[in-house]
């Protein structure tokens, strides 16, 4: 018997266990388990109306978290995305109110998102300024700029056709949820099977090795940020069109919710691993928890503390798991 077959024979039952214990599977179990547990306590939680509200109202977080996941996998971070979503929503809404064709209003959000994020990517990758400094600076530029330009005024009288979030494909499937699932699947396939998608993991996992393999680290980072900007644009459209008004201020701490979804979704904060499927499941889980708090009579003011604990626990678990794997 050679060691190879021994290892193979041993690995077989473990592989099932491993698939079962993957972050994505754990999250799926948590999403369903929580629904059942809260449903037993308060059956109204499981009402179709509530469940669809939870999904519809938070699809934009999942979409933005897909981009954030890519950024974190590439070994960077972005804390400006919440402010950017506020700015993009306002740009798009202003165009729509002022009579621009709806498609132009929609596209403007995507294009502006790509431009702002690509600019940040260029500063980070080519001028080698840490992502945290660039995005912290950009956060305040966007936030202050938005409030001083709009004066915090709300945009109302949006044309009906602007409301992307109201579209129901084939009369039943709500567009935000379809988009969330579609974006997740496409991004997951891209990251798993395409050369440029694998490059993101390579750059985040071992920048030096990636360079030796002929992957341009700066170009990959700019690409990741540009994509992240596009997803932020899409998220902004869902966010802007789900209500009849756009509050021209930045949704407070939105970036934290998005980062939480990515991190809890199994992205290793050390870069190099993680999937967008996990981040979407995590976004659903976080939205579910926020809604569940209300149904089990806990004040929704605790939601941010719950988020903090969630990040903390996943990050510590991730690092301890890696350490055990390295030690074994």
């Amino acid at each position: 018997m050679t060691t190879v077959t021994l290892a193979g024979a041993e690995a077989d039952p473990r592989r099932w266990l491993k698939a079962f214990a993957s972050q994505e599977a754990l999250l799926a179990i948590a999403v369903i388990g929580l629904a059942i547990a809260v449903g037993l306590y308060n059956p109204r939680f499981l009402a179709a109306r509530n469940l669809s509200d939870v999904l519809l109202g938070n699809a934009y977080i999942a979409v933005a978290a897909v981009g954030m996941t890519m950024v974190i996998i590439s070994g960077n971070i972005d804390i400006s995305v919440g402010a950017l979503i506020g700015v993009l929503a306002t740009i798009s809404g202003t165009l729509a109110v002022n009579g621009a064709p709806i498609v132009v209003a929609w596209l403007a959000a995507l294009v502006a998102g790509i431009l702002v994020m690509a600019l940040q990517g260029i500063i980070i990758a080519y001028l080698r300024i840490p992502a945290i400094v660039v995005t912290l600076g950009m956060l305040s530029i966007l936030k202050g700029g938005l409030i001083s330009v709009t004066g915090g005024k709300w945009i109302t009288d949006l044309p009906d056709s602007f409301h992307l979030a109201d579209i129901e494909l084939f009369g039943v499937l709500p567009f935000p949820v379809v988009l969330m699932i579609l974006v997740t699947i496409l991004a997951a396939l891209w990251m798993r099977y395409s050369a440029s998608g694998r490059a993101v993991y390579a750059v985040g996992g071992n920048a030096e090795a990636a360079r030796l393999c002929g992957i341009s680290q700066p170009r990959t980072i700019v690409m990741v940020f540009a994509l992240h900007g596009m997803f932020a644009g899409a998220a902004a459209l869902l966010y802007a069109t789900q209500l009849r008004v756009i509050q021209s201020t930045v949704p407070p701490n939105l970036e934290l919710t998005i980062i939480t979804a990515s991190v809890v979704g199994g992205v290793s904060i050390l870069g190099g691993t993680g999937t967008v499927v996990g981040s979407t499941l995590a976004a659903v889980l976080i939205a579910e928890i926020a809604s569940a708090l209300v149904f089990i009579d806990v004040s929704p003011y605790w939601i941010r503390a719950v988020q903090g604990v969630l990040i903390l626990v996943t990050v510590i678990a991730d690092i301890l798991r890696r350490r055990r794997m390295a030690g074994a």
Partner: peptide, 13 residues
């Protein structure tokens, strides 16, 4: 970042 969320969350809670 985690405790940025956590401590603010505790303050709000």
């Amino acid at each position: 970042i985690a405790t940025l969320a956590l401590y603010r969350g505790l303050a709000e809670g």
